[in-house]
Structure formats: C-alpha cells, structure tokens
Computed example of a mutant assay.
Amino acid sequence: MTFSRRHALSGLCSIAFGLSGPAHADGLDALNQFIKQTRSGRAQFTQVVTSPPKSGQVARSKTSSGSFEFQRPGKFRFDYRKPFVQTLVADGQTLWLHDVDLNQVSARNQAQVLGSTPVALLTAASDLEALKTDFQFKAEADREGLQWVRATPKKSDGQIQSVLVGLRAADKGVELAVLDVQDALGQRSVLNFSAFELNPALPASAFVFKAPAGADVIRP
C-alpha cells in the first residue's frame, strides 16, 4: 500500500472557524453550545495528514478532501473524493470503511473503536459534562478568529494524544471549523471545515451502509 493511501486511511480513523456572531466567554462555552444545540451538521472538509519524519528525512504530508455529515447520537459519514474515493460511515452500531479502488470494506464495532476519538467527541454526547468521563478539557487562547479547546483523553494508552477543536460563532449558533488531532505515534491530522450547515434535515439513508456486491468484507 502506498504512503498516500496508507496515511489517508490512517487519517480517516484518527479522526468522527472566524467569529461572526455573539462572542462566547471562551472555547469551552462555545464547544458546550455546539454540542447542546447542534443535532446534525453538514460541511465540506480538507484534511492534511503529516507523519513524523524518519531519521534523515523530512516530514511527509498528504492532502485529501470531501464532505462530512453527522447526526446525534453517534451517526456520521465522511465521503472522501480526492485523492482516493473512500467512505467512512458510522450507523450507531458499526463503523464501516469502504475503499472503492481496492473494493474492500472493513466493519468494526463502533462502541469499541470510537469511545475516545475526535468524532465521538463531537457527535456522541449531549453535553460537555458527558464527555468529561473520557476527556480533560482546557480552553486555549483565541487566535485566527476562532475559539479553541484542547481535549486530552484520560486514558494514556489510546491512539489519540490530544485534539484541538476550533469553533466560530455564526448567526445560527456555533460552527465547527478545525479539528487538529495529534496521535500517540506523532502523526498529525488537521481537518478544516467549510460551508458548515447547522441542523440540516438529513435523510436516514445517509447513515446506512451496504457493502457493494463482490467487495472483500473484513471483520476483525
């Protein structure tokens, strides 16, 4: 598997804004409002995955892009369009990853793999207090027109080292702008969201996945 494909897949599973409205006291207030008031969301995204440099080499990065949708509690969908067509769907029970070029599907128990991940942080809980079982939160200084929160998993043996969440105040509420994820192996994955829609009506079919005929389905 090439660097590009391997790290695009890794970025998928690691994973699932400028101020223009009323200001919040800090990033924690903004994140709490986002979690409480945003029942669903839809956006475009660009993701840059950077791997730590090996001895004598420079760090390498790969950029991908696509669309993101989610619906509480615990349903989301990433459709990667460039550079490879891949789909990541969480239906509330199973996390599905479909690589179109390889005609390969992996299916994993959602609760087992998403408990302390960035996407679970944003799509599973109903308020910030519910997330404090798995994360420690710290408000960061405002910068680049965004309000920031750093979330650190309480379990030190997980894949994620820290998550930096960037939020922007909008007319209809708080929008997600950035997820900056640092994993335990030193890989960094930064997702920038644009054209964010707050509480759109999403069809149930958006979070239903059926493996294509002939696809190799892997269940660990």
Rank of each mutant, 00 (worst) to 15 (best):
P53C: 06
P200V: 12
Q159E: 11
L88V: 11
L176Q: 09
L28T: 01
P153H: 12
F78N: 01
S189M: 07
F209C: 07
S51A: 15
L176E: 06
V217L: 11
Q44M: 04
G21V: 12
D180L: 07
P73L: 06
V174M: 05
G145S: 03
A59Q: 13
R81I: 11
L114G: 09
P212M: 10
D134E: 14
V100G: 01
G18P: 12
A25Q: 07
S126H: 14
G74M: 03
V48L: 12
G18V: 08
F76S: 06
N109H: 05
R108L: 09
Q93M: 03
I35S: 08
S55I: 14
F70E: 07
R143K: 15
Q93W: 00
D91F: 01
G41I: 06
A59N: 14
E129D: 15
P153Y: 11
A151H: 02
H7W: 14
G214A: 07
V190H: 02
R72W: 05
Q33H: 13
Q182T: 10
S162G: 01
A111R: 08
S40D: 09
T133L: 05
V58M: 12
C13Y: 02
A195T: 11
I35Y: 03
Q147G: 09
S162A: 14
A16R: 05
S20R: 15
S4G: 02
L185I: 09
Q110N: 02
V105G: 00
G158L: 07
D79F: 07
T2I: 08
L12T: 00
A30I: 05
